[in-house]
């Protein structure tokens, strides 16, 4: 019972630390500029728990903390890379639509003069 509680505490601490440590702007940029490649990188590259957070901790704490930190860190990375990817694609589609309709409108306007 006590062990389960301390494991839960270690996991909660790891998740809070991972949420604070992961560079969200970097992963949004990766998704924005690299698209699915950025999302893939966010999924493959696991964040590392800082060594100082494991100093003086028990083996049980280290085991739980490391797993929870990597899992939460990866999920934050992927979420932000997906946001970046969606934003990038929306911008691309928007620019393409503007370009397409702009060209049509120009062609239409040009055609109406004949």
């Amino acid at each position: 019972m006590v062990q389960a509680q301390s494991a839960q505490r270690a996991c909660m601490q790891a998740e809070m630390d991972a949420e604070a440590d992961v560079n969200k702007v970097l992963w949004i940029a990766a998704g924005f500029f690299l698209g699915l490649l950025g999302v893939g990188a966010a999924y493959v590259l696991e964040p590392d728990p800082p060594a100082s957070n494991l100093l003086g901790k028990s083996p049980e704490y280290v085991a739980v903390y490391t797993d929870c930190y990597k899992r939460k860190g990866k999920s934050v990375q992927v979420k932000n890379a997906v946001i970046g990817c969606v934003l990038g694609n929306l911008l691309y589609v928007g620019a393409y639509a503007c370009c397409l309709f702009g060209t049509c409108a120009t062609a239409g306007a040009a055609g109406s003069t004949y």
């Binding site: 003086g56 901790k57 280290v62």
Partner: peptide, 26 residues
């Protein structure tokens, strides 16, 4: 506890528990 920070590996060794972790880091 003995903790070694090496270029690609974090080693954490517990002599009393006869247990060690080798954590890959970047």
């Amino acid at each position: 506890q003995i903790m070694l920070i090496l270029p690609e590996t974090l080693v954490i060794y517990y002599p009393d528990h006869k247990k060690a972790f080798k954590i890959r880091h970047h």
